[in-house]
Simulated scan of single mutants.
Amino acid sequence: MIINRIRTFAIASILAFSAATGSAQDLLARQAPVDRRSAAADTIVLQSLRHREEMENPSSDLYPTWENRYAHKATPMPDVYRIDLRGFCMPTPSRVITSNFGRRWGRWHKGLDIKVYIGDTIRAAFSGKVRIVDYEASGYGKYIVIRHNNGLETIYGHLSKQIVTENQYVRAGQPIGLGGNTGRSTGSHLHFETRLCGVALNPALMFDFPNQDVTGDFYTYRSSTIDDESAQATAARGKASSRGYSRENIQGNGQISHGNINHNAVRRQAQPRRTENEQANSGAQMRYYRVEAGETLENVAEKCGVSVEKLCNLNHFGRFTVVRKGQLVRYS
């Protein structure tokens, strides 16, 4: 009798446990769709908050403050930083570079000069927030500074008209101003700068104006190699690679309807850089010499068989420019 009772109790316990387990599984099964919906809702909320933060203060992880007083003010710079170039728009359809980034007339030129005509449409290179709309008589003239979500700030100088306001959010390709000849300028053109943490980077590292494209989906800034890369970028995509200085070599006159963005943003991987020898042999008129430690302009001129004056003219150097080890100097 006792054995039968024990057996009955054991069977009843097993059945009760099975029923409880089944009920728990049913509860979990019913709860799973709710959890998935909650997770999806949380993701949407986070994305919305992130988008709102980017619109209010782009690249807040790089820049400690948002202020409208200085066109550029150097802040702590990372040794390595990856810049997303996707979703870009060329600021102008002009292919003609009239002045390179670097030493020019005894002072540093911290952007590219692109040939445009007064009234040509200038567009935001990336989406971002307008930080400054101002006028500088002895420099930029009428200019605009935009901070972008990829960490860059772009500056557009010598405009004839600004058509955006400070703290306005703009999309890539949105018209922001008109080409002009204001400020310290000797002819109508767009002065275009790209800066990271307030430090000027050669736009030719990222933008290929002659081919109306960017150099790749991403550009990785490295403090250890930036000087060499900048010189190579100028040699490959700077003034010497432009196809002349006339309206015929400018695609249209810049008057493009609103929203006509460069759709090459959805395209190929970065093209491989040409080697220094390939650059030198690509045309009889362009040859470069890499400076060695301790060399001066006089040493370079003697080794290359040209005059110091010719080096200065070809590279926009001053007579007493100090060249650095590893720097590429054009000598023909």
Rank of each mutant, 00 (worst) to 15 (best):
G305Q: 05
T275M: 11
I256L: 15
N262C: 09
A270H: 11
N260R: 14
N299D: 15
E278Q: 15
S257I: 10
V306R: 09
R274T: 01
Y288Q: 07
N260M: 15
Q285M: 11
E295D: 07
L311H: 02
R243N: 14
N264H: 00
G294Q: 01
Q279C: 05
V266M: 08
N264G: 02
A301W: 01
K303G: 03
G254E: 02
Y245V: 15
A265G: 01
Q271I: 03
K303I: 06
E292Q: 15
V300A: 05
T296M: 02
R274H: 06
E292W: 06
I261S: 04
A235Q: 02
G259S: 13
E248S: 14
G244T: 02
R287T: 08
S257Q: 06
R247M: 06
A236V: 00
R287H: 15
Q269Y: 05
C304L: 06
A293R: 15
R273V: 02
L297T: 04
E295Q: 15
E248Y: 13
E276D: 13
R290Q: 11
R247P: 00
G259R: 13
K303Y: 06
S246E: 01
E278A: 14
E295V: 00
M286G: 07
G294R: 04
R287I: 03
C312M: 13
N260I: 14
C304S: 09
E292F: 07
S242D: 01
G238R: 11
G294A: 11
T275H: 08
Y245C: 13
R243Y: 10
N253C: 04
R274C: 03
E302L: 13
Y289G: 04
T275A: 12
E309H: 10
Y288E: 03
Q279V: 11
N262W: 07
I261W: 02
T275C: 09
H258V: 13
K239C: 07
Q285F: 10
V266W: 09
V291H: 11
R287D: 09
E302H: 12
H258G: 04
E309V: 10
V266I: 11
S241V: 05
N260W: 12
Q279T: 05
A240L: 07
V306T: 09
E309M: 10
G283I: 06
A293E: 15
P272W: 00
N260F: 13
Y288S: 09
N262Q: 05
Y289N: 00
S282H: 09
N264Q: 00
V300Y: 00
Y245I: 15
N260D: 14
T275P: 10
Y245S: 13
A236H: 00
N264S: 03
M286F: 14
H263D: 07
E309F: 08
E248W: 13
S246F: 03
I261V: 15
S257L: 09
K303R: 14
I256Y: 07
R267A: 01
E295Y: 03
G244K: 01
G283T: 12
L311Y: 05
G238L: 06
T234Q: 03
V308C: 12
Y289A: 02
Q255R: 08
Q255V: 05
C304T: 14
N277S: 14
Q269L: 11
A284K: 08
